[in-house]
């Protein structure tokens, strides 16, 4: 990194902290701190929702996914616009009109304190751990770019974010998110421009896209119905619908954001912004990965994008084996480049296109095979079983191929993506712990000033906790997967409880609580004993909660009589 790039990164960090801190002057009551006085405009909240959802893992991981597998991951987001409409019609008016601070608070009004406390506890447990992963995954990659240790990088990400979130509350989070979103989109567009300009003079954009398409990297629709395949049209439109309804409708980090708007229609407007822009934005991120694939197809690139492992293996005990693998990679890449040029020539001539395309596909499969072998080699040589080169593709491209200035802008964009997610999650964790536990069970009568102090301490505590988890997760790679799987255990189940809350007047509190436990048990069984892909776990969890919840409620009504069961069951 050059001086100008460092300058851009430092200016970005200082600007964010300053901008966040200047919001503190409007924060003198709990509603101002947690809900921005319910006065934020829909467009700012909409951008904030999108910024929180777009993490640094998206910037570094999804671009790498586009490089390796192409755009098929886009199918994951196809249900999002429909989920936004469903939520705008159902949960949003319930939350907004009930004047709650947290989504779980609503569950006590409808059911009982134990259902509220349990769902909130699930949120705190899973979110705090996954926040550690959200910090850890990019920190590991950014530490390579900055030449810092992982602990130092975690501090660079978490400390400034914690400072403005602690003092500025949700207003600071939302308004910094708006600026961070500008950085993210600006950085992504700059990357696309550099990638297109960087194509060889004799390769047009159309040629490049035809080459990418021929290797399957522009596939955005897979209509096969396979429950074990994560990314198909059906899992993206049916199973993901449940995931997005759960995430945007019951996860405090999202619900809190649209509670900051002044009316139900403004809250709906903020969600519909994601409905319009999420798929195109995600397509842009994946397209960057695809363009990097084309770039490195015509320009010799590294076998492993993680420079540290590459260097260690070149100098290690198995250097000869590694060099042999490197030679195979160079040969396979040269042959693929020749095949790509032959394919473009065949297209231009209008003959022999099918044969040239088949050859290109075969050569590409060969290169992919050698890269996969190299990654297995790293895992065996270093003992790091979770090593994945995918996350290093975009950062390596930025630091080695981008012009000065754009490097700084893109690193600031990655930091922005990380910080917007961290800030949103910290604010949500603080709100849930203070409102659902401290104020509910410990000090219900305390003053707003007291709660504000406690909220700031809670924000600081969660920042410290997630940072420690981040450093720990960096050294225990496999933990990341455990945390991600843990989260998927109850997303659908929590959605099921909310479906019972607003959609089933006959559901009782015991029915909802037992249904929730049954839903989580069903998901655990599906995850442990069936090959069903995790997206479908959301459907399994939600359906199990609704069925078991209604059954238990009906049994309770029969045993105790309708009057006793209905005591709390009000819609």
């Amino acid at each position: 990194m050059r001086t100008l790039d460092w300058f851009i990164v430092v200016v970005y960090l200082v600007w964010m902290v300053w901008d966040g801190l200047r919001r503190t002057k409007n924060v003198d009551a709990l509603e101002g701190y947690f809900l921005g006085g319910r006065s934020l405009p829909w467009w700012a909240v909409g951008l904030s929702v999108m910024a929180t959802q777009l993490s640094a893992i998206t910037m570094v991981g999804t671009t790498g996914q586009g490089f390796n597998d192409g755009m098929r991951f886009l199918q994951f987001y196809y249900a999002l616009p429909i989920a936004m409409i469903v939520l705008s019609v159902t949960l949003v008016p319930f939350f907004h009109n009930s004047g709650v601070y947290t989504a779980y608070e609503y569950l006590e009004r409808r059911f009982d304190a134990k259902t509220r406390a349990f769902t909130s506890l699930l949120f705190l447990g899973s979110r705090s751990m996954s926040l550690g992963v959200v910090i850890s995954a990019p920190a590991v990659v950014i530490s390579v770019m900055f030449g810092l240790s992982v602990t130092q990088t975690v501090l660079v990400l978490a400390l400034p974010t914690a400072v403005y979130t602690m003092f500025g509350g949700v207003q600071a989070v939302a308004w910094t998110d708006v600026k961070q979103m500008v950085f993210i989109v600006g950085g992504l567009l700059a990357a696309v421009v550099v990638l297109i300009v960087g194509l060889p003079a004799d390769v047009s954009l159309s040629d490049a896209l035809h080459v990418a398409g021929s290797t399957g990297r522009l596939q955005t629709f897979d209509f096969s119905f396979d429950l074990t395949n994560q990314y198909t049209f059906w899992s993206g439109t049916i199973a993901a619908l449940f995931l997005f309804c759960s995430y945007f409708g019951t996860d405090q980090s999202q619900v809190q954001r649209y509670l900051t708007t002044k009316s139900v229609d403004e809250a709906r407007g903020s969600l519909l912004m994601s409905a319009y822009w999420k798929i195109p934005l995600q397509a842009l991120v994946l397209l960057i990965g695809v363009l990097m694939f084309v770039y490195y197809l015509f320009t010799p690139g590294p076998m492993l994008f993680d420079g540290r492992h590459d260097q260690a293996l070149r100098e290690g005990a198995r250097a000869t084996e590694y060099q042999a693998l490197q030679s195979r990679f160079t040969d396979a890449s040269d042959q693929r480049r020749a095949a790509a040029r032959a394919f473009s020539a065949a297209r231009a001539a209008g003959q022999g296109v099918d044969a040239a395309q088949a050859d290109l596909r075969a050569r590409d499969a060969e290169v992919r095979g050698v890269r996969a072998e190299a990654q297995r080699f790293v895992r065996a040589a270093t003992g790091d079983s979770s090593y994945n080169d995918t996350n290093y593709v975009f950062p390596t491209f930025i630091t080695t191929q981008m012009p000065v200035g754009v490097v700084g802008l893109l690193i600031a964009a990655i930091l922005a993506a990380a910080m917007s997610t961290i800030a949103g999650e910290l604010s949500a964790l603080s709100t849930a712990s203070v409102i659902d536990f401290y104020r509910r069970f410990l000090r219900p009568e305390a003053s707003d000033a007291h709660f504000l102090r406690v909220s700031r301490i809670a924000t600081g505590f969660w920042a410290l906790f997630s940072s420690v988890v981040a450093v720990w997760a960096a050294s225990l790679g496999s933990l990341i997967e455990v945390v991600n799987r843990f989260g998927s255990f109850f997303y659908g189940s929590i959605l099921g409880v909310f479906i019972l809350a607003i959609g089933a007047k006959r559901a009782t509190s015991n029915g909802a609580f037992i249904g929730l436990l049954a839903g989580m048990a069903s998901v655990w069984y599906a995850a442990s004993y069936t090959p069903v892909a995790f997206l479908w776990h959301n459907v399994i969890g939600a359906v199990a909660v609704v069925i078991v919840g209604l059954l238990v409620s009906e049994i309770e009504r029969q045993v105790r009589g309708p009057a006793a069961s209905d005591a709390r069951a009000r819609a």
Binding site: P81, I82, S88, T220, F221, G269, Y276
Partner: peptide, 30 residues
């Protein structure tokens, strides 16, 4: 039609257009 209902219809129409464009993109370049 209320304002919100027409907003929802607009979202669905744009959604279908985006999916159609992506499908055409995949078919054209594959």
């Amino acid at each position: 039609m209320s304002t919100m209902t027409s907003s929802y219809v607009r979202v669905v129409v744009v959604w279908l257009l985006v999916l159609a464009a992506l499908f055409a993109f995949q078919r054209y370049f594959s």
